[in-house]
Design a protein around this nucleic acid. Sequence first.
DNA 1: TGACAAATTTGGATCGATCCAATTATGAAC
DNA 2: GTTCATAATTGGATCGATCCAAATTTGTCA
Lengths: 348, 348
Amino acid sequence: MSKGRVTVVDIAHAAGVSKSTVSLVLQGSPLVNEATRAKVNAVIRDLGYVYNRAAANLRQTASSKIIGIVVNDLTNSFFAELAVGVDMVVQSAGYVQFLSNTGESIDRQREVIASMREHGISGLIISPARGTEAADFKPLVASGIPVVLTVRNISGAKVSSLLSDNRMGAAQAVAHLAGLGHRRIAFLGGFPDTAVFEDRLKGFRDGLAAAGLPFAEELIVGSAPSRAGGVEAIERAMLIAERPTAALCFNDAVAFGVCDGLRARRMEPGADFAVIGFDDVIEAKTAVPALTTVNVDPQGMGRRAAQLLMKQINAGKAEPEAIVGAVRLVVRQSCGAGMKNQQWRNAV
Amino acid sequence: MSKGRVTVVDIAHAAGVSKSTVSLVLQGSPLVNEATRAKVNAVIRDLGYVYNRAAANLRQTASSKIIGIVVNDLTNSFFAELAVGVDMVVQSAGYVQFLSNTGESIDRQREVIASMREHGISGLIISPARGTEAADFKPLVASGIPVVLTVRNISGAKVSSLLSDNRMGAAQAVAHLAGLGHRRIAFLGGFPDTAVFEDRLKGFRDGLAAAGLPFAEELIVGSAPSRAGGVEAIERAMLIAERPTAALCFNDAVAFGVCDGLRARRMEPGADFAVIGFDDVIEAKTAVPALTTVNVDPQGMGRRAAQLLMKQINAGKAEPEAIVGAVRLVVRQSCGAGMKNQQWRNAV
DNA sequence: TGACAAATTTGGATCGATCCAATTATGAAC
DNA sequence: GTTCATAATTGGATCGATCCAAATTTGTCA
């Protein structure tokens, strides 16, 4: 019964045609007679034939219908959603995705990229691990495999990128806080040695400058970009002599941690301290208090990155393209926008 | 330069040996002379050769080194962590994973499984979409591809499964609440038509029975298994004439939503109402109040599922194996375990 | 040096689907 | 009935790596 798999030759034999005809049917060629097509399709169903893509890809003409996606931290829901967005687009384009998580390890990243190449991916979407260098993409580019860099940029890499406008978003958030009357605004969380941190910090400074507020080094408190990191960051921020009354957080995970930390010291986020996050993950809307945050739409980014990649795959050799996605501040409760401004000045 | 890719024949030519020898070097055969091996490896490096797995897999002997993983909701961090666990194990075994998200759509699930088969996966780990039937795995099983069902069981499917002991976990949680003095305990959230819901509800009833408490239908409030669903569930539960004073939630996401909903009506989880979750996702520990929950260890489940699958792939034809993972109650603050028991009786 | 075993190397055939040039069937027009 | 165009079909050759049996080289010992 199940001895060896069914091949085009088996189909051809059972349907009384040649394997070439079967092949034409498989790719929906208009050259084949309708009656023949129907007969072949019937046999295909009857024998439970499974198309062997690997064999088809052996010919240099076809592309593998596989794309790779590499993220630096899948346990962060931002990246999980990014992956979902990519999956949506590639699935409907008839592709499948290899997904790998590097957990910020460059060695692992190198391994998975090598492995993906061996499997013949047609393109790669990657949020690179910390410390990735432009040279790491050289071999991919040399063999004509389109690469879309997302979330984090790598300067000097001659590949496409899809980033969000971190600087503008951070500046908007600071402007909002300043408008509410805050004068001591902290920037909490994140690893200072990443491009994203740099961009958001630049925007933070832009916002302070635009509001005529001084920049104070001590109000920048780095930490792991996680919930636990947020708890730690707010604790350290509260040790500062002249305490902040508001914070822009590196991302939503940090912001949630900051809220946790505030409550642990009997302060209510949105009432006693203003918190703004970054990313707008799903939970931001339903949390209590609902998180004011900069909407980045990770799922949308995933979709756009996938669309960009698809375009480049179909175009053959495509020029690197750099897209910066717009970003917008979503005002909810955690920044205390509904409160009287006065209280913040008295808070210190 | 980059005209066509480099193949074993190119290597053989450049190194002055036959392609057979190159092949032997590639698979690390002890048959080849050390000097020859070194020379071939040098040429491989120089020419930037990339191994073509698709070509190698064409021979029926080799396996594809690809496994598939299908989850029903990747935006749920439980499944993201499960995927991370799987990825860890398969990566170190030299495999890569196709990951697809079905979003509970059976049609999409069928498509992705078909696509994965065409790509020649050696095995499949799947948390099936709602409504999946045993028959859906028939073709996989028939062609000898090991399948590991995880998280959700499908009765009648002749495949392996790795589930957690939902019944026992729920019973433990109820026992704990009863021990704290609660008499009106609700079961909140989740879709009633899933196997996981059924199991946890069974455990819930076991726990009530063991504590000598009556079962009241109105205290079972279904909802989407999400944070938003949790908010909705607690709101409905609070409309009940004789209000509950504690709740076992379908999962942690629901539990967080319940906490949000409680706070929205000025009740403090852990003080005014006891909340227990299920799964123990990463955020459970750092949330405020820290969530008492049944630890399921999704990452560990992913690892174990992957190990089971690897074992079956290596064993050739393996007997289906059903593993039920132990589960344990992690007591934190949200159940108010540190409080005096007395107050709960007065709370109603 | 010759005989023989052990260590290395190698040319074809093979996997399954595709492509191409070439062939055969069908139809229309005269 | 022949001619020519069009529709439909088909037999290799091909992609890149592996496997096998057979050939070659190397080493050992009488």
